[in-house]
Nucleic acid binder design. Structure first.
Length: 290
DNA sequence: CGCATTTGACCTCT
DNA sequence: AGAGGTCAAATGCG
């Protein structure tokens, strides 16, 4: 199974999560939170992921009203919902069938934007459309923009990533709520902290929350839960190197590689704030790899 | 042969 | 006028 980490703040308060993300991002930037240990790649990747996703999510929440596409879309009275997903999530699909109807080079973007329409747009007049574009900063992540709502009645099927054949893997659709920005934020975090099965460490037991703390906040916890999103079919190897299929070696491919048995991980502030001050608690970090 | 994808042209909007 | 979005013929694949 693939681990999925969902962000849960202490009070279930989304604005507080955003505030905490701002703190984390700033601390990482100022190197007040620095990471050490025998698995520096893991530490660096976690820090960089948190920082980049926080940056993206924060800007998404604050700038959406200035986005010309957003404005144009709102003019047409169509609901627009944006989120960032990993390639694994893209392959797992959003539960609907989509048919690509065009691709376009976008000015200033490294990757082309693909345009998808619900396969039932013709038969049932479903108006749902989505746009998929690889992010500039991380080619393994995609920005997905959903425009309009499904009016079709269909069986839930996995969507198809650009250039990929459909998979039989079934995945529940992404759950949206009345706060698309906040929902996207949480989904961005969740998808960015996905761990592929090959990257699991052996020997860790039941999942425990991976907690982080900064001086400016009480606490935030990345709670492991049974994923509402399914892992992609391994046979598709979406984004994975062409290593032999029976190999357990994962390519140098995000989220990260993990090696070594004596892993050690801590935030410097951990002692002051009561997290990860016990060598055994290093399992808190790695347990979410299960 | 049917369906999905690709791709260049055309349309719309700012 | 330029950029983004859509159309539709060509192409590929099962």
């Amino acid at each position: 199974m693939a681990a999925r980490v969902n962000l849960v703040d202490g009070n279930g308060c989304i604005p507080q999560v955003v505030t905490e993300l701002c703190h984390i991002k700033e601390l990482v930037r100022q190197q007040e939170v620095h990471l050490d240990g025998s698995v520096p790649d893991l530490c660096k990747h976690l820090a960089s992921q948190i920082s980049s996703i926080a940056d993206h999510s924060i800007s998404m929440l604050s700038d959406a009203s200035d986005d010309p596409i957003f404005k144009a879309t709102m003019k047409r009275n169509k609901k627009r919902h944006e989120l960032r997903v990993s390639n694994a999530d893209l392959l797992a699909g959003d539960g609907h069938n989509w048919r690509m109807y065009g691709q376009k080079e976008i000015l200033g973007a490294k990757h082309r934007r693909a345009y998808y329409r619900c396969t039932h747009w013709n038969s049932q007049g479903c108006k749902a459309v989505k746009q998929v574009q690889g992010t500039d900063e991380d080619p393994t992540f995609f920005n997905i923009v959903y425009i309009g709502e499904h009016t079709c009645v269909q069986g839930q099927r996995a969507a198809v990533a650009p250039g990929q054949a459909a998979t039989d893997a079934q995945a529940p659709e992404y759950k949206y709520n009345a706060n698309p920005g906040a929902s996207s934020l949480l989904q961005s975090l969740s998808s960015s902290l996905t761990v592929e099965p090959e990257q699991q460490l052996q020997g860790w037991d039941a999942p425990a929350p991976f907690c982080f703390s900064t001086p400016a906040m009480a606490s935030g916890c990345l709670m492991l839960e049974s994923s509402p999103f399914s892992a992609p079919s391994r046979s598709k190897n979406w984004g994975v190197s062409s290593a032999t299929s029976d190999s357990n070696h994962v390519a140098s491919f995000p989220p990260f590689e993990v090696a070594g048995d004596d892993a050690f991980f801590r935030f410097d502030e951990a002692d002051d704030y009561g997290f990860l001050d016990d060598p055994d608690s290093t399992s808190d970090v790695f347990s979410f790899l299960e």
